[in-house]
Every structure is written in structure tokens, then in C-alpha cells.
Amino acid sequence: MKEQLEAIQAEALEKVEQAKNPKELQEIRVTYLGKKGSLTKVLKGMGKLSKEERPVVGQIANVVRDAIAKALDDKSEMLEQIALEKQLESEAIDVTLPGRPVNVGGPHLLTSIVEEIEDLFIGMGYEVREGPEVETDYYNFEALNLPKNHPARDMQDTFYITNELLMRTHTSPVQARTMQEYKGEKPFKMICPGKVYRRDTDDATHSHQFTQIEGLYVDKNVRMSDLKGTLDKFAKKMFGEEREIRLRPSFFPFTEPSVEMDISCKVCQGAGCSVCKGTGWIEILGGGMVHPKVLSMAGYNPEVYSGFAFGMGPERIAMLKYGVNDIRGFYLNDKRFLKQYHKA
């Protein structure tokens, strides 16, 4: 009987070896291991064996069954593997064909610039303040030391709605409103971005609507050197650590002393070129120490408090940083223009 079992094993393994697909394997399984299979048949005849022979043959029979079962499993796995590989091969696609488009939009370049500047000053402890675009004459001019009939306040430059209402010409009224809100008591740092309007004819360098960001710091013992240090930090972060700044005296009715800030020209490194009109410097922003009249009108005692203020135009910064050469481009919203600056 032992020989018989070994013969069955040899025959079964031989067939498994030759099987070509899962169906054949299944047949082999039925043929040898099934209820009516040859191995089962042999085992059924075990009753005829002696008590001593039975465990021995039983053990052999188990070994044979396990061997066949394992061979069948192995072969089955192998065939599945082959089948899978075959299937995967048939599923191959042309990976060089273009992908399905996913639509993603982007911010306007001026938003990117404004947010970059906001974040930069937030990092230095500034809050962001906003205010109305239609302003009163008082907040736009008078509270900023520009009384009626002041020469620096030309009606022609301002879009008036009534004698008292106008489109704000700068975001400075937000500064005046903030100072009033803090009632002349609280030191603060703020920046105010927003849209402003001037009575200009639109051309490559003028726009009747544009963007401005102003900053204001009011505290006890604010020094002009603090303004210089702050603007230097801003310029280096915004334009690159290698940039130098230069302050020049200037004039604004709401600051005294007043400054204009230049940064060294990136193109020529200060040697002078067409971008900087040969001077080596490019004008970026204006600022100064808050005029005592502006402080006192807003309720801050200029004997106790001092402050600095500055203002800049994101359009100009974008023009310098990204080489935009026509201010109207910001407001035409040409898809190609917008798209190219989504990464800005």
C-alpha cells in the first residue's frame, strides 16, 4: 500500500507540474484529493490493514496528501501570478499622453504683493486696518494737516462727490481713524492697505485707481532711527538681503521730518543704469515722523507721544520686482498676465 501511495504522489506531482491553467489544477485536485479521488480511495482501503500497519500507512498518506495539496497551491499561486502579469501587461497605457486637466486659479499679483507686505509687518507686530474708500474731507485732508486751501491739496487731483465727501486719495485716513479710536492713549503699530483714487488720466504710469499700503507706529519715544531700521528690514525682506537703502529728506504735510526712501538698483548694483536713470537708486516709498499737528488732532499729546509713518504703492513695487511696465496691466485682467503672476 505504501508503494501505491508513493505512486499516486509521483503521478499527481507529475500532473501538477504539467498543468497549464487553474481549471486543470482543479481537475487534478478532484482526481487525487476529492471525495472520490484516488488518494481517498486508497485511504478507504486502510480498514483492511493490521493495527500495526495502520498508523504507519496513515502517516504516509498524510504526507502524500500534504505534498499534493502544497504542490497544487504553489502551482495555483504561480499560475495566478502569471495570469496577473499577463493582465497587467495588457492594461499598459501610454503614459506620455496628457493628463486630465484640474482647474486651479490664483491670486491677482497685487493681492500677492499686499499679502506679502502685510505678513512682513505682522511679523514685526503690526495689525492690519481697513477703512472706507469714500471718505470725508476731514479724514482725508484736514486731520492730516491739510486744511482747506492748503497748496498741497489740489482739487484737481481729487475725485470729489460733494464738498465734504470724496474718493480717498491715500489710505492715511485709516491712520487718523485708528488714532481717534485709540483715544490718544494706546501705543500701536498698524498698516492699512487699500484702494485709493486720484483724478488722473490713465496711462502707462498713472491710474485713476491704485493700491496703497501705509504704516503707522505711535508710542512714547519713537525715534527717526526706528523708522530707518524698520524700512531697512522691510526693504531687505521684500527685495533681497543685498539691497541697501538710502533716506532722503522730502516733504509731506503730515510728517516732519519727512523722508523718501530709495533702494539700491538691482540691475546695476548701484553703478547707474537706465532702470535707475543713472543714479544707482530707485525710489520706493515716502514716510517720516508724524507731524505734531496730526498727533494732537487725533488726541495724542505730541509732548508725550511721537510716531513714524510711511506709505508705498504695491503697483510700483510689483513693477520693480516683476518688471511690469504699464500700470494699466494690473486692471485689464488679461488672462495671460494674471496667470503668469499666480506663482508670484
Partner: peptide, 29 residues
């Protein structure tokens, strides 16, 4: 303040030191 500017500009704005505000410690945001 007008006189301050006169002194500062003849002294030279480029000779002003670079400092950062030492007061207000508000958290920006």
C-alpha cells in the same frame, strides 16, 4: 520738528543709525 529736519538733513540722513522700536509689544496679526 521743522528745525529737527534741518539739523537732520545737514547732519545727513545716511548717518542716522538703524534701530528698531523699543516700545509697544503688541502681537500683530
Amino acid at each position: 520738528e521743522d528745525m529737527l529736519e534741518e539739523v537732520a538733513r545737514i547732519y545727513g540722513y545716511d548717518k542716522l543709525p538703524f534701530t528698531l522700536p523699543e516700545g509697544s509689544n503688541q502681537a500683530g496679526g
